[in-house]
Design a protein around this nucleic acid. Structure first.
Length: 153
DNA sequence: GCCAACGTTGGC
DNA sequence: GCCAACGTTGGC
């Protein structure tokens, strides 16, 4: 089992909304590396840390789970969508996504500053300066450490 | 609002 | 294939 991390701006799609809706298509990812992870690596049942980016403060806020096999992101075919991609066709879709389902909120949100200060999380992609990847692999040890940190006040 | 660190585009 | 220009992400 691998674990993962996704970023979302709370205004675009928040942990509150995921909790309310229970499950969602992780639409709108338009980065090839992130797409490849969803297409080739993520498996149903694997756990996903949920990060609020561009938030105040930016923080890890919850846990989700991969809930589907990969399939084409329908928004790429929709001219009315802001994620529309004129170069994508149904025969040759360009963007692939998976569904995510809500698992839990972290007992308390973990602000980025706190994560950065923890030696146990050294090397985590999220903490790398300039890191922009919106779907990332997470080491099991880092995942466990996040849960630990969040469980302590 | 600033800007560093990207990724993409397109001319050549 | 190179690379400059440009656009975006996202922390601060």
């Amino acid at each position: 089992m691998s674990c993962w991390l996704v970023k979302s701006e709370p205004e675009a799609y928040s942990i509150d909304r995921l909790e309310r809706e229970g499950r969602t298509m992780w639409e709108g990812v338009r980065n090839y590396q992130a797409r490849n992870l969803m297409r080739d690596q993520m498996k149903v049942g694997e756990l996903v840390l949920f990060h609020h980016s561009n938030a105040d403060p930016p923080a890890l806020v919850g846990i989700a789970r991969v809930a589907s096999a990969p399939y084409p992101d329908p928004t790429q075919f929709d001219p009315a969508s802001k994620y529309f991609d004129a170069k994508a066709t149904k025969e040759a879709p360009r963007w692939i996504l998976v569904d995510l389902e809500f698992v839990e909120r972290l007992p308390r949100p973990l602000p980025l500053a706190e994560l950065k200060a923890d030696p146990g999380l050294e090397g985590m992609e999220l903490l790398r300066k300039g890191s922009r990847l919106s779907v990332q692999p997470v080491l099991d040890a880092h995942f466990q450490r996040v849960k630990e940190l969040s469980a302590s006040p």
